[in-house]
């Protein structure tokens, strides 16, 4: 089936070419009656599949990772620091001789959990505000939009630094901080989408039926903007992971002795010079997670075209 599509795709390009005409006709005549009325069946695209595998893997690790970790997370189990990959320490040891694999697995719930919660919070509040603003219009829209604009003007990292400096670093604070930092972006996108959907006649029809605001925004409008919002969710998740990693790298994220992946990179940064796996492993983990989410989201967007 797959090769069939590819083949026909290349023939499609040669529409006006004379030489391919006869072969094309034969192919068309034979295949149309056989396969014409088949039901929708899409083949998974390889990028999306890879993304799904990666995301699924990391989600599972976030849940069971701490349980399957081979060593104690903070135990100084090895004598050698920046130890190489070995059967006992599959990803080497860190600057204190702790097992990197165990630390990575224990870090997964922090990195993924915090990012997931923060992104969900950011997207939900942004989308709801965006819908309310688009549906209400007038001064409500103006008020919400200007407040969000003011927030968007503050650089994320600066904002995060100020928050941590003022309140000290803790997991709930990191979640709230990341959510606030990324909400205006969600709001902007959601409002832009909602304003477009709002002008559709079916929304007007709901209004002339006398429907309330909640029905209009959640039943009529939201389903029609869900796909782009989900795509945005994926992108923002990646940004939040990177922001948290950057915060941890600066020593302002998850505090020792706990460590998320960003902290792992920072702790072991001296190992970079000697090519230690201790610094590469968490960096690769961040990279695969973010790429996996991106690939998955892209494939969802592609399927939207029906």
């Amino acid at each position: 089936m797959k090769s069939n599509i590819n083949q026909s795709g290349s023939q499609n390009m040669a529409t006006s070419g004379g030489s391919g005409q006869v072969a094309e006709n034969e192919w068309l005549d034979n295949s149309v009656p056989v396969t014409a009325p088949t039901k929708h069946r899409r083949l998974p695209n390889p990028g999306g599949f890879l993304g799904f595998i990666l995301v699924f893997f990391w989600l599972v690790m976030a849940v069971i990772g701490p349980m399957i970790a081979p060593h104690d997370v903070n135990g100084l189990v090895s004598d050698s620091f920046f130890g190489p990959i070995s059967s006992q320490y599959p990803l080497g040891t860190d600057y204190l001789g702790r097992d990197i694999l165990s630390r990575l697995l224990h870090g997964a719930p922090y990195t993924i959990g915090i990012a997931l919660l923060a992104t969900s919070l950011a997207c939900m509040s942004g989308v709801v505000l965006g819908l309310v603003a688009a549906a209400s219009g007038g001064w409500i829209d103006a008020l919400i939009s200007r407040v969000q604009d003011a927030m968007i003007a503050i650089p994320n990292k600066i904002f995060a630094l100020i928050m941590v400096a003022s309140f000290g670093s803790s997991v709930p604070l990191l979640i709230v901080m990341a959510a606030i930092a990324y909400m205006p972006g969600c709001y902007r996108i959601a409002r832009a989408l909602a304003v477009n959907v709002m002008t559709m006649d079916y929304v007007l029809a709901a209004r002339t039926r006398g429907e309330g605001l909640a029905y209009i925004i959640f039943i009529e409008v939201l389903p029609n903007m869900l796909r782009p919002v989900l795509t945005d969710f994926g992108l923002r998740f990646v940004y939040v992971v990177l922001l948290l990693s950057a915060m941890s790298f600066l020593g302002l994220g998850v505090q020792p002795p706990d460590a998320d992946w960003g902290s792992l990179v920072r702790e072991n940064i001296q190992g970079l010079g000697i090519g230690a796996p201790a610094v590469l492993a968490p960096a690769v983990a961040i990279a695969t997670l973010t790429m996996g989410v991106n690939l998955l989201i892209d494939s969802l967007g592609g399927r939207a075209k029906r």
């Binding site: 069939n4 499609n12 088949t38």
Partner: peptide
Amino acid sequence: RTDEGVDLP
């Protein structure tokens, strides 16, 4: 061409 990659005349 339909979504399933089938040509309909």
